[in-house]
Amino acid sequence: MEKFEPKILAFLCNWCAYAAADLAGVSRFQYPSNVKPLRVMCSARVDPLYIIKALKAGWDGILVSG
């Protein structure tokens, strides 16, 4: 069987987690590429429904960071 590579959607707060992800880039930290960031103005924006809809759409995992 092929190795399972989950597709992960990351909701990142504009003010902290998104800025941190930028800084990770500046510092050239390497991490797996299967995490796709999506910027929101606050992690509070993430309606629980989004998570359900994201899973339905085909994402395997959701990260909310803020």
Partner: peptide, 20 residues
């Protein structure tokens, strides 16, 4: 954001960076 959150953090794998 295909630099800070993509090519800079996947600089060892061009294919993966491109796909992301």
């Amino acid at each position: 954001n295909i630099r800070n959150q993509c090519t800079w953090v996947h600089s060892h794998n061009k294919e993966e960076a491109t796909e992301k």
